[in-house]
């Protein structure tokens, strides 16, 4: 698979001496939906800043679709769409003007720019707001406007820096659907997010960055397979007995209240076996859920290590 992004030994030291990136290397395949995770201050936004040329790197080599960003400035920028973490459009401008201006910066003729502008504003549910000043939009609409703006030149690579921060769950899910759609059409997507559920749902590959270093870079499937146990929360329809136990080796029980209990289940045990055991105990399970997101559990383990 061709490589969309190649980062080699990327270092960034800010003028105050803070080393944000300590020589990270990373490759993202074309067509991938890639998660870049890490705690606050880990270096995610600096990495994105370097890719989008808003941050001058100290050293290292960055290529986009095989082209060095230093020697192929125009081509690499043309392939790139960026949705930053902070709102970065003029809030006194009209929605349509913001997207049209961005199209103009990429050299799109007016007619094509107008068609694309309508296409993406409609797709992101902003067409009705096209003549409104952008400051009048809600937080979620502003984020969608930044996505429409980033897509107007139809880049091959889209970088989203926490695109769903502060967005309600309904809107977040509709954005997931939209992003999955454009990824299926071939756009490579790099996503940073604090919502690990989001990364788990959307992304095929993942890199975890901490203190300016990559601490994990693998596929989501392989990473999740590293979990040696999972904690499930069960709701019983009947009241639990105070001496309730489960007869499975390696599975531990913790009673939360009269109807709720937690089971820590090793990865080698299948959930079917757990249900069979609960059935033998005549415990009618009304519902079951993971106590914490699986990726969150791993994320914290990796960071602690």
């Amino acid at each position: 698979m061709p490589i969309a992004i190649s980062i080699k030994d990327l270092k960034k030291t800010y003028s105050n001496g803070f080393e944000a990136l300590k020589g990270i290397s990373l490759e993202v395949e074309e067509g991938d939906f890639f998660a870049l995770l890490g705690p606050n201050g880990a270096g995610k936004s600096t990495t994105i800043g370097v890719l989008s040329t808003l941050v001058n790197r100290t050293s290292g080599v960055v290529s986009i679709f095989g082209k060095n960003v230093d020697t192929h400035v125009y081509e690499t920028k043309l392939d790139l769409g960026v949705v930053p973490q902070e709102i970065n459009f003029n809030q006194f401008e009209k929605v349509r003007d913001i997207v049209m201006a961005q199209a103009g910066y990429y050299g799109l003729p007016r007619k094509l720019a107008s068609e694309r502008c309508e296409k993406y504003l409609r797709k992101l549910g902003l067409w009705e707001k096209r003549d409104d000043r952008s400051r009048s939009l809600s937080g979620g609409m502003k984020r969608r406007l930044m996505i429409a703006r980033a897509l107007v030149h139809e880049p091959r690579l889209l970088i989203l820096d926490e695109p769903t921060a502060g967005v309600d769950i309904e809107l977040r899910r509709s954005m997931w659907e939209f992003l999955t759609g454009i990824n299926e059409q071939g756009t490579t997507i790099i996503l940073t997010t604090h919502y690990l559920e989001e990364a788990e749902q959307l992304c095929r590959n993942i890199a975890i960055i901490a203190e300016g270093k990559i601490v994990e870079n693998t596929s989501m499937k392989l990473l999740l397979a590293e979990l040696d146990s999972q904690v499930f929360v069960f709701d019983s329809a009947d009241e639990l007995k105070s001496d309730f136990e489960i007869d499975m080796e390696g599975v531990s029980v913790k009673i939360i209240d009269s109807h709720t209990f937690e089971l820590t289940v090793p990865a080698v045990i299948q959930i079917n076996e757990v249900f069979a055991s609960l059935d033998r105990k005549s415990i009618p399970v009304r519902s079951m859920r993971n106590k914490t997101n699986r990726l969150e559990q791993l994320f914290l383990t990796k960071l602690n290590n």
């Binding site: 790139l80 459009f89 961005q102």
Partner: peptide, 18 residues
């Protein structure tokens, strides 16, 4: 300066405009 202040200058800086 207004564009710097609102960060909207980034629209221009990430684009391929020389």
């Amino acid at each position: 300066f207004g564009q710097k202040f609102s960060n909207s200058v980034e629209e221009l800086l990430v684009s391929p405009v020389p």
